[in-house]
Every structure is written in structure tokens, then in C-alpha cells.
Design a protein around this nucleic acid. Structure first.
Length: 542
RNA sequence: GGGUCUAUAGCUCAGUCGGUAGAGCUGCGGGCUUUUAACCCGUAGGUCGCGAGUUCAAGUCUCGCUGGACCCA
């Protein structure tokens, strides 16, 4: 081995390591001067620390039409600011240092005249360092508001270089190191600010309607509230198997029994299923329950909520919202409502297919090729193979209607229901009872339940129904879930005896609602993947 | 689980017909007293995801594996 002879050259061969070593060396030099490269004494200064946004705001009055500042009108007011260094641009005897804090950006102008000996120490400054600058306001010849630095020191030395100019694009790296993503890609931090605004607006909407926000268990002894595969865990002291919640539904309805007639929860849920652009193993669901309401009450309320949340987002982030709005392919101006059977019939008609498709598609002699040809001629390509497989698994007419709707109608909702060049959100109503084990049957037609799902831009965002509060009906629905499990069904709910007991005490007539918060954020911010709206999505270990 | 694409410097990317590795940014050294992706000169930085195969010769062609992205289930 010859590398022992030239250890330094070997070190330099590892480029990233080299970059880090250079920065560690600068930190050491800062220490040698008696300063701390990880200082935490900014609060001690005589001048208070000012947010960069507020420095700018102080000079709003003298800003020109073009956004520039005129040197003579910017009074040399003293400020102390802090932030991350976005660039250091040396220009002979002066150096420009651009800072960013959570409120905005501002540059410091450094000259030997202002900084004295400290000017030479700028060589220890790197992109990404957190610094404190004290000085006086000024405007450059190009009209940029700046701080003429009288002092500048490193508060936090960044050992690793941040990506610059060329952005940080590797998708996996961005999710893995979100802290870098948030600094390097400003539009990413805008989406997460929007998420916060959206959640806050949702809370205001329900708080103002006299709903009570609650927190219910995320570790459940039984699988319930939805049809999904759960994560399993174990409680040692009780030696008890537990499931991470797949939905908060059954606990929230227990609270309705207890007299909390209007409750909601922003509930983190966990489902042990695949990962895709629309699925993360943990996600946030809004569920709310309202006594003395029906699914029709909730449909109207959903329209109001969507418009309210979007308007609040526009108020909070007008610039960003305008951008998102302009590329939106859907509108909230009008919502369509239509029963599932009608949606299916219309979709069949538009595809030029007979109504009998629903009955015959999984028969051995079904003329699939002809149907496929006809549908394609009408501009509709159906996933016939999966349609047939799905149908074969069905054990009731209700399930068949649902599967047919899923393959024939749902993929085309954005195309079939439009207002100008935008798609219209569609409420699909009147679901078969077989696919809705917790919903109330319709008084007029017991094969259907009072339920809707809302599709925005073709994606399912909400699911709601008038709640089943008849304990005997509920018991038989639980029983059929248990029977299905015995027949080999993979995803079923457990029989929840305590929930039946709760219903036996009497739950007022009520309606309940669930919404994927992550999906709503995707809609409103035009984000194509759920991983763009979840700060730390689940990834394979490094 | 199926399909398509993809992996080259710390970052963003070139690399033609198979001929032995390139640019910009970052870093380092120097110049420049109002920059805005500053600019100019110099310099450093690579096991071309991993493993086989074909070939005189593979970043490039073939096969397998692994990771990732997107679409479908």
C-alpha cells in the first residue's frame, strides 16, 4: 500500500470530506481568536435583533415604483440582524453577504471602513453559516436595501456545504434530508407553510361551528373504523396485541353517544399498505361527527369548508396562492352531485356500452374485445383485466355495482363533469350497503346507504355518511365482516362489542365525515405527490 | 406484484460510431471598491451504483442484482 506515504493527497481524494475539513479548519481559526463558532449569546446585544422583514418594512415609504431604494432617502438607522448566509460575493474592497431568516432576505455590505480588522476575517465565512450582523441601513447604487456592516460574526459554523444555484433535485435525497431541501428549494417551504395555514383554517371552520376538537387513542385493541391493513404492536405490561389506528371513527361516535354532539379530530392514521404518490403509511385524516345532521347537511357543509379553507389560504399567502390557482385544473365554483348508479349508467352510455356490462363482464363468453373496441372508439380505455378480476371477487350485487362504477365511471369523472376548462368536484352518493359497513341504510331503499364521496380533480378526498345508530343492524354488519374474514377476506373489521354496547345506550341521529388532509393540501398547492406535503415521508433505511 | 425510465465529481449535468473522464457551480490560491446566477486568471476534486459477460479495448453493448422516479394494480 502506498497511500500511507501521502495521507494528505489521499484525504483530498475524498471531495466531500475535504470540503468538510476546510470548514472545520475555519471553525478552529474562529476558536483561536477566542470566539465561539457555536455561539448562543445573541440576546445579549444592546440593540434588539430585528427580523429581516421588519428592516424592509421600515423603509416601505421610500421604496420606488420598481421596488428599488434611493440611497439618499434611506436613513442610516442602526439594526442588528441574524440569518443564514445565502451567498458571499467578494468584490475587491467590498463584500456582499446575503442573509435569510424565516421572514425574508437582506444583504449586508462589508467594507474595511466599517468592519476594520474584522474585514479580513470574512475569509472564515462560508455559504450556509448562520451569522449576526450589526450596522446601519443603506441602499446600494443599484437600489438594493442593505445593512452597512459595523460588525459581523459567525454564530453557527456550517460544516457541510449547502447546495447552491443549481438546486437540490434528487428526489430521494430531498425527502431524506428535508432540512436541506427546505433551505435549498424555497417553493418546498411554501408548501409546508400552506399546509399549516390549511390545517389552521380547518380548525377555525369547525371551532366557529361549535365543534369540539378531541384526541382519541391511536393504539387500538381491535381493527375498526375502516377497511385497511393495520400495523401491529404490543404492550408489554398488559401483554396485549394492539393495532395502530386506521381510523378514529368508532371512538368519535362513542363521544357522540356521550353527548359531544359535534366533535372533530385531526387524526394521524397508519395503514400497512403500499407506498405511492397518493399513499404514505402514516397520514392525517380529518374526521368529524355532527348529531341531528344527515349526509346531505354534510354535503353542503363540505362545499362551504372547501371554499372557506381555500379563501383563508389565499388571504394568508396571496402571492403563492395566485400561482397555485392559475395552474389548477379544477374549480370550487360549482359541485356536482350524483348517485353512483346514475354515474355508472352515464359512463356506460358515454362509452357506448350496454347496461348489461355490469352483469356479464366476468362471464367466460363476455364480448370483452368488442366492448373494448367500442369504448376506445368513444375515447375511453378501461382496465378490463382488473375490472374482471375485481368482479369475480364480488359476492353481492351491491359490490358489483361498486366495482363497475370504479372501473367504468370513476377514472373519467374529471372528463365528464366540467365547467369551462376546469373540472368540477363531484359528490358520488347512494353507495351500496355492502361496501359501507358503518353507514345508515336509506329509508326508501334498503340496498343503499346515505353516503357520499367527494372527488376533486379525479381524486377521492372525502367520504361521509349518515351514521348507522341501530345497534342490531350494526351488530349484523360486524358479523358479516367476521364471516367474510372466515371466508378468507384479508381486510375486514373486527367485531367491536363495546361499540355495540355504546350504541345500545343510544346515539342521536348523526352524520360523519372523513377527509384526507394530505390530499387536500396536494390539491390546493398543486403538489403531485403526497411526499411533497409530508415533511418526513417513510423511506427505506439508508 | 406488472410496465416505462433512470444511476458519471459535494451539487446540476454532458459524454457521438466501443478507443481509457468533461463543463458550470461549490472548495482552494490570486485579481477586481456597488455585486444581484457578478466577472477574470489559476488549481484541486472520479472504484462512471454493484457483479458477470462480449471485445484487443466497456461510462458506452448484453445479462443479472441493488437503489430511485413515474404509471398501473
Amino acid at each position: 500500500m502506498t497511500n500511507d506515504a501521502r495521507p494528505e493527497a489521499k484525504d483530498q481524494g475524498k471531495s466531500e470530506h475535504h470540503l468538510i475539513e476546510v470548514r472545520r479548519g475555519k471553525a478552529a481559526r474562529i476558536r483561536e481568536r477566542g470566539e465561539n463558532p457555536f455561539a448562543n449569546d445573541v440576546v445579549a446585544g444592546e440593540l434588539p435583533l430585528t427580523d429581516l422583514r421588519d428592516v424592509r418594512a421600515s423603509f416601505d415609504g421610500v421604496r420606488g415604483e420598481d421596488g428599488r431604494y434611493i440611497a439618499e432617502t434611506v436613513l442610516p438607522t442602526a439594526f442588528r440582524v441574524a440569518g443564514r448566509v445565502l451567498f458571499v460575493r467578494g468584490f475587491g474592497g467590498m463584500t456582499f453577504v446575503r442573509l435569510r431568516d424565516r421572514t425574508g432576505e437582506l444583504q449586508a455590505v462589508c467594507e474595511e471602513a466599517g468592519l476594520g480588522e474584522a474585514f479580513a476575517r470574512l475569509e472564515d465565512l462560508d455559504l450556509g453559516d448562520i451569522v449576526e450582523v450589526a450596522g446601519t441601513a443603506m441602499a446600494t447604487k443599484k437600489g438594493e436595501l442593505s445593512i452597512a456592516a459595523k460588525s459581523l460574526r459567525v454564530l453557527t459554523k456550517a460544516f457541510r456545504p449547502l447546495p447552491t444555484k443549481t438546486s437540490f433535485k434528487d428526489v430521494e435525497q430531498r425527502y431524506r434530508m428535508r432540512y436541506v431541501d427546505l433551505v435549498a428549494n424555497p417553493e418546498v417551504s411554501q408548501v409546508f407553510r400552506a399546509r399549516s395555514q390549511i390545517v389552521s383554517a380547518v380548525r377555525r371552520f369547525f371551532d366557529s361551528r361549535d365543534f369540539l376538537e378531541v384526541e382519541t387513542p391511536t393504539m387500538h385493541p381491535l381493527i375498526g373504523g375502516a377497511v385497511a391493513k393495520p400495523f401491529r404492536t404490543h404492550h408489554n405490561a398488559l401483554d396485549m396485541e394492539l393495532f395502530m389506528r386506521i381510523a378514529p371513527e368508532l371512538y368519535l361516535k362513542r363521544l357522540v353517544v356521550g353527548g359531544f354532539e359535534r366533535v372533530y379530530e385531526l387524526a394521524r392514521c397508519y395503514r400497512n399498505e403500499g407506498i405511492s404518490t397518493r399513499h404514505n403509511p402514516e397520514f392525517t385524516m380529518l374526521e368529524y361527527y355532527q348529531a341531528y345532521a344527515t349526509y346531505e347537511t354534510l354535503m353542503a357543509q363540505t362545499e362551504e369548508m372547501m371554499r372557506f379553507v381555500d379563501a383563508e389560504l389565499a388571504k394568508a399567502m396571496p402571492t403563492e396562492h395566485a400561482g397555485w390557482l392559475s395552474s389548477r385544473r379544477f374549480t370550487f365554483e360549482r359541485f356536482e352531485r350524483l348517485p353512483m348508479k346514475a354515474a355508472l349508467a352515464k359512463a356506460l352510455e358515454l362509452a357506448g356500452l350496454p347496461l348489461t356490462v355490469t352483469d356479464l363482464v366476468d362471464q367466460p363468453d363476455a364480448p370483452i374485445k368488442d366492448w373494448a373496441k367500442t369504448a376506445k372508439a368513444n375515447g375511453r380505455e378501461l382496465d378490463w383485466a382488473n375490472f374482471r378480476t375485481g368482479m369475480k371477487k364480488c359476492t353481492s350485487t351491491g359490490e358489483r355495482t361498486f366495482v363497475a362504477y370504479e372501473y367504468v365511471a370513476e377514472p373519467f369523472l374529471t372528463r365528464d363533469y366540467r365547467e369551462g376548462d376546469k373540472s368540477v368536484p363531484v359528490f358520488i352518493t347512494d353507495y351500496p350497503f355492502e361496501v359501507s359497513p358503518l353507514a345508515r341504510k336509506q329509508d326508501a331503499d334498503g340496498t343503499l346507504v346515505d353516503r357520499f364521496e367527494l372527488f376533486i380533480d379525479g381524486k377521492e378526498v372525502c367520504n361521509a355518511f349518515s351514521e348507522l345508530n341501530d345497534p342490531e343492524d350494526q351488530a349484523s354488519r360486524f358479523q358479516s365482516q367476521v364471516d367474510a374474514k372466515e371466508r378468507g377476506a384479508e381486510e375486514t373489521m373486527d367485531y367491536d362489542h363495546d361499540y355495540i354496547r355504546a350504541l345500545e345506550y343510544g346515539m342521536p341521529p348523526a352524520a360523519g365525515f372523513g377527509m384526507g388532509v394530505d390530499r387536500l393540501v396536494m390539491m390546493l398547492t398543486g403538489s403531485p405527490s403526497i411526499r411533497d406535503v409530508v415533511l418526513f415521508p417513510l423511506l427505506r433505511p439508508e
